[in-house]
Amino acid sequence: MTGLERARIVVIGSTMMDMISYLPRIPDTGETLLGDRFALGFGGKGANQAVMAGRLGAEVWMVACVGTDVFGDMTLDNFRAAGIDTTYVTRTSAASSGVAPIWVEAGGDNRIVVVPGANALLTEGQATSAVSSIPRVDVVVGQFEVPQAVTAAGFRAAKERGALTVLNPAPAADISPDLLSVTDWLMPNEVEFESLAGSTPTDTAITDLAARYGVKVVATLGEAGAAVADGSGRVVRITPPATTAIDTTGAGDAFVGAFSYGLAAGLSPTAAARLGCACASSSVARAGTQSSFPQAADLDAALTWARA
């Protein structure tokens, strides 16, 4: 479908069952509101990014930990249906599978609570073994919904093999020096950027953050698109395709998965970021998380737009 080289991506990260409530507005403290509808879906930043990369045509391995509960069963079935390799997804009876209660208000804005559960029990050894064992790895992706030490271990193994590493520092938190030392691309949204840089993502702030951390940076900016600092000394801003937002849940993950695929498939960083914008814009036009990600003709259109 893509006409690009088959990309090979490892995602070290979380799985969640999304429990999504749609309501007119967020309730005040102590207030009860009637919602419009409810949906149960598959989520977790790691899982979302893996599914998006897989839809674009990548071979994707997921490194994760789920419970021995029904949510764990459902998560594994969903990965298999999406074509994601689950060889390195472990199971534990010591904790429940991760869950994410989500509120989506009119206009598409969302608020999310993440309960990691089994995600917190993923180990450094599991991440290292997975990345070291897979034949040829182009890009390894991580986030903050599993322990940073686990992601750092996987990234070290990736660097030893010559693979690129992409870190989505979400939810917002300080980044450990060990993890920064093996990160090639840092991909914060506006909230995460301000947490790290202490300012909004102006061109100067983006280049300063990249220089301070010794990384390349893509700042995702919601409906304003993205800003890319690829090490050339300049910042490229990308305006996304126009769309009407229904539900922004998972849009950032669609961007990260698509960007990571673009890098792995040989696109320039700017073209990869354009692909991320196109996939994220397509996602917000539909309700849900993974269920909102573009497929088939939408993906062909996104790739064409990215490479224009």
Rank of each mutant, 00 (worst) to 15 (best):
V131K: 02
V131D: 05
S132P: 02
S133F: 03
I134Y: 14
P135N: 08
R136G: 11
V137G: 11
V139K: 00
G142V: 10
F144L: 11
E145Q: 04
E145A: 03
V146S: 07
P147Y: 10
P147R: 07
P147M: 08
Q148A: 13
A149V: 03
A149T: 01
A149N: 11
V150H: 13
T151L: 09
A152I: 06
G154W: 06
F155N: 06
F155K: 04
F155Y: 05
F155E: 02
R156E: 08
A157M: 05
A157V: 04
A158H: 05
K159W: 03
K159C: 02
K159L: 05
E160D: 12
E160Y: 01
R161F: 10
R161K: 14
R161P: 05
A163M: 09
L164A: 11
L164W: 05
T165Q: 14
V166Q: 02
V166A: 04
V166Y: 03
P169I: 00
A172D: 11
A172V: 00
A172Y: 10
A173V: 00
D174I: 00
D174H: 06
I175S: 07
S176W: 03
S176Q: 11
P177S: 05
P177D: 12
L179E: 01
L180Y: 06
S181Q: 08
W185A: 01
W185P: 06
M187V: 15
P188G: 12
P188T: 03
N189L: 10
E190R: 15
V191Q: 15
V191Y: 15
F193I: 06
E194K: 15
S195L: 15
T200Q: 14
A205R: 13
I206D: 06
I206K: 11
D208I: 04
D208C: 01
A210M: 06
A210Q: 11
R212F: 00
R212K: 11
Y213A: 06
G214K: 03
V215Q: 09
V215N: 06
V215W: 07
K216P: 02
G222H: 13
E223H: 14
E223M: 10
V228M: 10
V228L: 12
D230T: 11
G231H: 07
G233H: 04
R237S: 04
R237Q: 05
I238Q: 04
I238S: 04
I238F: 00
P240Y: 07
A242W: 13
T244P: 09
T244C: 09
T244H: 07
T244S: 15
T248S: 15
T248R: 04
G250V: 05
G252A: 09
D253C: 11
D253V: 05
A254V: 10
A254C: 14
F255G: 08
V256Y: 01
A258T: 14
F259V: 07
F259L: 14
S260G: 10
S260L: 03
L263A: 08
A264H: 10
A265E: 02
A265S: 03
A265H: 06
